[in-house]
Computed example of a mutant assay.
Amino acid sequence: MAARRCPRLRSKGHVALLATRFPLYGVIGTPYQFTGDGIQPLASSDAPLPYSHPQTNWFLASQLVRELREYKVVNMDDLVPLRTAARRFWAKDRTVERHPRASRLDHRAGMAST
């Protein structure tokens, strides 16, 4: 749908990818530091900060970043529309198993249990 509605995608072209392996990498946001005047924001950039970075404790994330490791280029016309896929998914018998203590925990929290 975006490829049909977005002028930039229509004029510049686009590629559809079906991602099969896309682990979490890090975040984009604003770094902070503790100074004599308290906690102060530092200059932010659009570069992602990996989760393994020591600065993550002083970082306010605004976007999640995933690393695209494995994918397949697909033709948009070959994909099943989302509504059709969702309808097929929910048409199957979906029996939800509840934890044995779930109704007791729901009752304590003031929730209606089924």
Rank of each mutant, 00 (worst) to 15 (best):
D78T: 05
R104L: 13
L17S: 08
G38M: 04
S113V: 08
H99G: 05
P41V: 03
R94A: 08
L17F: 11
A61V: 02
F34E: 12
R8D: 13
G110F: 06
M111L: 15
R83S: 10
H107Y: 13
K92E: 14
M76W: 00
Y32M: 08
R4H: 15
V73M: 01
P7I: 13
V74P: 00
S52Y: 05
R94K: 14
V15G: 06
H107V: 05
D46Y: 09
E70S: 07
H53L: 02
V80A: 05
R108M: 15
P31H: 03
Y51A: 06
A43N: 08
S44A: 12
Q55D: 12
H14Q: 12
L24P: 02
S11Y: 08
I28H: 01
A112L: 14
T95E: 13
G29D: 06
G36I: 07
A3H: 15
V96P: 03
H107Q: 14
Y25C: 03
T20D: 04
A91N: 14
S45N: 09
K12F: 12
R87N: 11
G29T: 03
D77V: 02
Y25T: 01
Q40V: 14
N75M: 02
F34C: 05
G29K: 04
Y71V: 01
A86Y: 06
R69F: 00
R94S: 09
S62I: 03
Q63E: 11
Y51T: 05
R69K: 10
A102E: 15
L60A: 14
R101N: 10
Q33R: 14
L42G: 03
W58Y: 10
G13T: 04
L79P: 01
Y51I: 10
S62D: 10
Q40K: 15
P50Y: 04
L82D: 07
W90S: 07
A47T: 13
R66M: 10
A16T: 07
D106T: 03
R21G: 04
E67I: 00
L18P: 01
F34M: 09
R66C: 09
G13D: 09
